[in-house]
Amino acid sequence: TIDEIIKALEQAVKDNKPIQVGNYTVTSADEAEKLAKKLKKEY
């Protein structure tokens, strides 16, 4: 679900690790936030 994706992003940001979500690779908190907002609009 979208919530699980967002939790995974938040965890990756805390661990400061890049995370791959679908076609996106998120490497920073800023990118994670942008991706989360984008995904919320889509779903």
Rank of each mutant, 00 (worst) to 15 (best):
12 A>Q: 03
29 A>C: 11
3 D>M: 12
20 Q>N: 11
27 T>Q: 11
26 V>K: 02
13 V>D: 01
28 S>E: 06
21 V>N: 04
35 L>F: 00
21 V>C: 15
34 K>R: 12
32 A>M: 06
31 E>D: 09
43 Y>V: 12
14 K>A: 08
21 V>Y: 06
20 Q>D: 06
17 K>F: 15
12 A>G: 06
28 S>L: 03
11 Q>S: 08
35 L>Y: 01
35 L>V: 04
4 E>Y: 09
17 K>L: 14
31 E>I: 04
28 S>T: 14
12 A>K: 02
5 I>L: 11
35 L>Q: 00
33 E>M: 12
14 K>Y: 03
9 L>V: 03
41 K>H: 13
6 I>P: 00
5 I>T: 02
3 D>P: 09
17 K>W: 15
18 P>G: 13
1 T>Q: 08
40 K>R: 13
3 D>S: 12
27 T>L: 13
6 I>L: 12
42 E>K: 10
1 T>W: 15
15 D>T: 08
32 A>P: 00
26 V>L: 03
29 A>I: 08
29 A>G: 08
41 K>M: 11
14 K>C: 09
34 K>W: 13
22 G>Y: 03
33 E>V: 08
40 K>Q: 09
19 I>D: 01
8 A>N: 04
7 K>S: 08
25 T>I: 15
36 A>S: 06
13 V>C: 09
1 T>H: 10
4 E>I: 08
27 T>K: 06
14 K>N: 06
27 T>W: 09
28 S>R: 00
36 A>Y: 12
5 I>C: 07
42 E>D: 13
21 V>F: 10
31 E>Y: 02
34 K>I: 10
39 L>C: 07
15 D>V: 05
14 K>E: 04
22 G>P: 10
24 Y>D: 12
16 N>R: 08
29 A>V: 08
20 Q>M: 12
26 V>F: 03
41 K>N: 13
25 T>E: 15
5 I>A: 02
26 V>Q: 03
9 L>Y: 00
33 E>Q: 10
37 K>A: 14
22 G>D: 11
18 P>D: 02
37 K>E: 14
39 L>D: 02
8 A>P: 00
25 T>K: 04
5 I>E: 01
1 T>S: 11
9 L>T: 00
25 T>D: 14
12 A>S: 05
24 Y>H: 14
42 E>S: 05
19 I>H: 02
25 T>V: 15
13 V>K: 07
19 I>W: 01
9 L>G: 02
7 K>R: 13
24 Y>C: 15
40 K>P: 01
24 Y>K: 12
11 Q>H: 04
